[in-house]
Design a protein around this nucleic acid. Sequence first.
DNA 1: ATCGGCTCGCGCAA
DNA 2: TGCGCGAAGCCGAT
Length: 494
Amino acid sequence: MNSEEHGFTQGEQGPRVRSVNHRELRANADFVLYWMIAARRPFFNSALDRAIAYAGKLNLPLVILEPLRCDYPWASDRFHRFVIDGMEENRQAFAVAPVTYCPYVEPAPGTGRGLVDALAERAAVVITDDFPCFFLPQAVEQMGRRLAVALEAVDGNGILPMSTADRPFSAAVHFRRHLQQHLREVLRCAPSATPFKDVRLKTLGPLPKSIRSRWPSASTALLRGEQGSLDSLPIDHEVSAVAMRGGWSRARRRLRAFVSRHLSRYAEGHKHPDDRATSRLSPYLHFGHIGAHEVFSAVMKHEGWSLRKLGLKATGQREGWWGVGAGAEAFLDQLVVWRELGFNTCAKNADNYENFESVPNWAQQTLAKHLGDLRPHLYSHAQLERAETHDPLWNAAQREMLRAGWCHNYMRMLWGKKILEWSPSPQQALATMIAIMNRWSLDGRDPSSYSGYMWTLGKYDRPWPEREVFGTVRSMSSANTAKKVRVKNYLRVR
DNA sequence: ATCGGCTCGCGCAA
DNA sequence: TGCGCGAAGCCGAT
């Protein structure tokens, strides 16, 4: 899976790199530091490439710190287990690379404080990941102000670097056209599939004892996922670990299975929850256990694609532009267009991407007009969270989220539309969606999840005939959904 | 089973 | 300035 095979050339990272604090590199430093906070993977990682390039140029060792706080919103056994699974697989990958890898799991709130600062004091430069959502933008800005050394954030999120667009997009078709105009050039700033190939770096060995004793690496028990190893952490134990396990090699296995078994029939199959034909890669993409370029590369290899197959006219057309089979066309629209539209939205609306005010005016107005409509079903946050409604199909989607930590894409739309219908106000519906999906779904707290919440409230969409409660916002019904898509087995899952 | 109409605003062609 | 068209819908007519 070599990215060059598909027309990528490497090393042109400019559009992905952002100086956070405009400070200088430190002379007489001991190493280069990669503060890995979003792209938690050892391959196809633009920030890692940047850090390796610095270490080579400065003739210094590379230290990779992968931390996990215990006090971020919705921290739970579920997310900890998944992230720590990833740490163990990263440990194995980095054990055979010329780097010092430090997985750190914070044992109590605040105990991790000062670790990045202490390492940065010895670093020539600090590289980190540029993720436009959740608490990460603020954490990176704060760190930039605090550090005396240069901090660079690298955007390894998608095929299209966020800096390529200077504005938000109100509809997928506009973003799709923009992507079609820029795809050829952005494929030149792709990350390496084999970042350590032909790279010789100085090595450091273990960190100084002063640092190791105050911030010891994650224990073997934690990394191996031993029973009870999360019990002492002050996180939400009610949200338990799930069958889906984290890490780059599990992500890669899932990718291979999806491409070989489901990709060719994805265009039709992805609609039907019973078919289980979707990739289920979103948790891995969210935590950075797999990169968009690796997924793209595997899909295109399967399709025998090359740059020559791309359409010539960037019209925003949904099908046929990539020049691959219908299944791959439909999947790429998800992976690249819809996923990266979400990153664009968060990046260009940093202040309000999680607020009701970011849905278009026509939708805000029509929902306001229907605030007084009779709502035959009103459920509390707790009833919804426990899947206790009168609607078996909706309950099934919510149960899937509780049990599997994930939910079928098509069902998420119905899930959100019904929460809008069953809530006293759209603002409260949004708050409920955020609270439930961010808490239970492994891929919550991601630009794509926020795009989904906002879509149910009318964002990226157009008006439809006026109805109770929804106004002219598009509605969905469980009865129609059950008629259109196969849900027989889905309903049986308890 | 299939089809048209519903409704707003954006971006492009003219 | 006008025109075409849009994440996955719903409803009623044929």
